[in-house]
């Protein structure tokens, strides 16, 4: 497995990177962690002329939690997410999710920016970002713009990002209340057969706010507003759980693959969501 040849670029800042992309056009791709892109290149399912490696862009490695807002530079690695106590305090679901991605070596290289920008429905962070209601910051020749994670994904590998833009930052509000990222996979290193991200705030045993998103059960991550609505105002009793699952099932569209047929995936998505809700509610 040998990739086709390319020219390599290592810009030192975002502006230079954006300029490079503008100059090189369609033949260029950004390299964040590379653990999705490089295997694709080695299988020659991705062939490109120019690779723009962001590893030297220091500003993209910043983690900050200020005024209840979490900001993650695109080149923050999964390992960094797990490692940061500050992040764990601000949004513990990040660590819980990141620990379920790939394996240790891949987590040292894999980045939040790469994971969310790639548009692979199997990636876990896009689903989590739906749940968190995150904002993505994109920078292109025309400057910066922001797009809601919930508006970003169009289809598998198709996103709102233009070819000459770089996703530079992910931003979301720190969480309060209960959380859970529940993922079933065949083994370490696999994508989810189904996964659910759940945030729940409760008062006196009643859900006051919820957010629910699913991974790898459609060609994009799925934020299920209806599922969250079904929980709000309830005590997360069996009826509410079932209503949330039913609402979620109306929003997903899983496809058959080696992980199993559609019937299984739909059933599993329900089970996983119920478990995620139960865990999140317990923590709320």
């Amino acid at each position: 497995m040998i990739p086709s040849a390319f020219e390599y670029h290592r810009p030192a800042d975002v502006a230079s990177a954006v300029k490079l992309l503008a100059e090189l056009g369609d033949d260029a791709r950004v390299l964040a962690g590379g653990h999705s892109l490089i295997p694709m290149m080695k299988l020659r399912m991705a062939e490109l002329e120019h690779l723009v490696d962001l590893q030297a862009v220091a500003e993209l490695k910043a983690i900050s939690v200020e005024d209840g807002t979490v900001s993650l530079g695109a080149m923050v690695t999964q390992h960094d997410l797990i490692d940061s106590e500050e992040l764990f305090r601000a949004a513990p679901i990040l660590r819980e999710t990141a620990l379920q991605i790939a394996d240790p070596q891949v987590r040292y290289m894999g980045t939040i920016g790469g994971n969310v920008a790639n548009g692979d429905p199997g990636n876990d962070m896009p689903g989590l970002m739906q749940c968190l209601g995150a904002t993505y910051v994109l920078e292109g020749p025309e400057g910066r713009r922001e797009v809601a994670a919930r508006d970003f994904y169009e289809a598998a590998y198709m996103t709102d990002r233009a070819d000459d833009e770089i996703l530079v930052q992910v931003r979301f509000a720190a969480t309060t209340g209960g959380y859970a990222y529940e993922k079933q996979k065949r083994k370490i290193g696999d994508y989810a057969t189904a996964a659910a991200a759940v945030l729940i705030e409760a008062e006196g045993g009643t859900v006051t706010r919820a957010s629910i998103a699913m991974t790898n059960v459609s060609d994009t991550p799925v934020w299920s507003e209806a599922a969250a609505d079904a929980l709000t105002g309830t005590t997360c009793d069996d009826a509410a759980l079932q209503a949330a699952v039913d609402a979620m099932l109306a929003d997903i569209d899983p496809q058959e693959d080696n992980r199993g047929p559609i019937e299984f995936k739909r059933h599993l998505a329900g089970v996983i969501l119920q478990r995620a809700i139960a865990r999140a509610f317990q923590r709320a």
């Binding site: 390299l31 590379g34 490089i38 295997p39 080695k42 590893q55 070596q105 891949v106 040292y108 290289m109």
Partner: peptide, 12 residues
Amino acid sequence: KSVKSCTVFAAQ
């Protein structure tokens, strides 16, 4: 960092 050197380019 521990890395898988089959998935890192020389240039990186």
